[in-house]
C-alpha cells in the first residue's frame, strides 16, 4: 500500500478580501467561536484584532491559545516560515494538535501568493493542503471595487466561499445586485451572509478533496455541479444585472480520454500565454491509462501538483473542467484542446 497523496494533510483556509471588507471583524468573531476549537488561525497582527484578556489561556510573543481552543498565531517573517514552524511546534508538543488552519492574506490581500506558497513549497505541502479560499465582499463598497479594481474581481473569481459583509448597512436591492453580479462572475462559490462577521467556521473548511477516494457526491460538490453555489440565492442571472463582460465562467466536458501529453501541453500553452487571465481552473480529467480521474487545480499560472484519484466514483468518465477567465472565451479554450489533440494524434 502506498501513501494517499491527499490524505493526512492539514487543510488550509485562506481568508481574503479588500481593505475594509470586514476581515478584522470576521477574525475577531472566529477567535471566540466554539467551532474554532483545535484550529490554528494565522493573522497579520494581533494588536489589530485585539484579544480580550479574559479569553487568553496561554500566550507568548507570537502565539496565543484562546479559551475556545483556537491557537492564534501572528506571521513573523513570512507565511512559509510561520507555517513550517507551526508544524514543528505541533510535532514537538509545544502547541495544541491543531487540525486545520485559517490564514489571513496580507498586504493588498491578493490571495495568489498564498496559494502559490501552498502549491509550490514542497516542505509545506508535506503537511498542508489548500482547502478553501474565502473572499469577503463588502456589500456597501463591493460593487464599486469590482468596477474599479481588477484585484477585487480576481479575489471573487478564485473564491470557494463568498462572504457578503455589511449587508445590514446596504440597501436590500444593492445587496441583491451585488450577489447577482458575483454569481455571474463565480457561479461555483457558496454565498454566505456574514453580518458583523457572524460566520460558522465549519462553512469555511472541509471544502477540498480530503483523500484520493472521494465519493461521487463530494466530487460533484467540489466541482460545483450540485448547485451548492445557489444555496443562499439560488437565482440565475436576471436581465439587467450588472455583470463583468470580461469575465468568462464556463465548464467544458470532453467525452474521450486525453493523452497526458495532449492535456498538459494544451494547459501549459494557455497558462504560458495567458496565465494572468486564467483566474481559476479546476476539474477531473480522464487521462488514458490512469486508474481514476486526475484532479487539476490552478489559480492563474499556479498549478497544484496533479493527483490521480483511486477510482472513478461513477460510470461517467468524461473529463470535466471548470474555467473562470478574463477575456478568454470558451471557444478559444475548446479549440485549443482540439488543436493540440490533433497535433498529438
Amino acid at each position: 500500500m502506498a501513501r494517499d497523496p491527499l490524505a493526512g494533510k492539514l487543510p488550509v483556509t485562506v481568508i481574503t478580501g479588500f481593505l475594509g471588507s470586514g476581515k478584522t471583524t470576521l477574525l475577531k468573531h472566529l477567535l471566540t467561536h466554539p467551532g474554532m476549537d483545535r484550529a490554528a488561525l494565522v493573522i497579520n497582527e494581533l494588536g489589530e484584532v485585539g484579544i480580550d484578556h479574559d479569553l487568553l489561556q496561554v500566550s507568548s510573543e507570537q502565539m496565543t491559545l484562546l479559551s475556545n481552543g483556537c491557537l492564534c498565531c501572528t506571521v513573523r517573517t513570512d507565511l512559509q516560515e510561520t507555517l513550517r514552524e507551526l508544524f514543528a511546534q505541533r510535532r514537538a508538543g509545544a502547541v495544541i494538535d491543531f487540525d486545520r488552519v485559517f490564514v489571513e492574506t496580507t498586504g493588498l490581500a491578493d490571495p495568489a501568493p498564498v496559494l502559490q506558497t501552498l502549491a509550490t513549497d514542497t516542505l509545506l505541502s508535506d503537511y498542508y493542503r489548500l482547502d478553501c479560499v474565502a473572499t469577503l465582499v463588502d456589500a456597501v463598497n463591493g460593487m464599486t471595487q469590482l468596477d474599479t479594481q481588477p484585484e477585487a474581481v480576481k479575489q471573487a473569481a478564485v473564491a470557494d466561499r463568498l462572504l457578503l459583509t455589511k449587508t445590514d448597512l446596504a440597501a436590500p436591492d444593492a445587496v441583491e445586485a451585488l450577489q447577482a453580479r458575483l454569481r455571474a462572475l463565480n457561479p461555483h462559490a457558496l454565498f454566505i451572509i456574514a453580518t458583523h462577521g457572524q460566520v460558522d467556521p465549519a462553512l469555511l473548511t472541509d471544502v477540498g478533496l480530503r483523500n484520493a477516494r472521494p465519493d461521487a457526491a463530494r466530487l460533484a460538490r467540489w466541482l460545483g455541479e450540485t448547485g451548492e453555489g445557489g444555496g443562499y440565492l439560488g437565482q440565475r442571472l436576471a436581465p439587467g444585472v450588472k455583470h463583468d463582460p470580461a469575465i468568462k465562467s464556463f465548464a467544458l466536458v470532453f467525452d474521450r480520454p486525453f493523452a497526458w501529453e495532449t492535456f498538459s501541453a494544451a494547459l501549459d500553452l494557455v497558462s504560458r500565454l495567458r496565465g494572468p487571465d486564467l483566474l481559476r481552473v479546476k476539474g477531473l480529467v480522464n487521462i488514458a491509462g490512469e486508474r481514476g480521474p486526475v484532479v487539476v487545480q490552478a489559480v492563474q499560472h499556479i498549478f497544484h501538483p496533479t493527483v490521480t484519484l483511486e477510482a472513478w466514483p461513477s460510470d461517467d468518465r468524461r473529463s470535466r473542467l471548470v474555467f473562470i477567465t478574463r477575456n478568454i472565451p470558451r471557444e478559444t479554450v475548446e479549440q485549443l484542446f482540439a488543436a493540440v489533440g490533433a497535433l498529438n494524434a
Partner: peptide, 18 residues
C-alpha cells in the same frame, strides 16, 4: 519563533499528540 511559556499546552507527557 519562541516557545510558549513552560509548560506549553501540549509539552506535558500526559498530553496526547496525534
Amino acid at each position: 519563533m519562541t516557545k510558549l511559556a513552560a509548560p506549553g499546552p501540549a509539552a506535558r507527557p500526559e498530553q496526547t499528540l496525534a
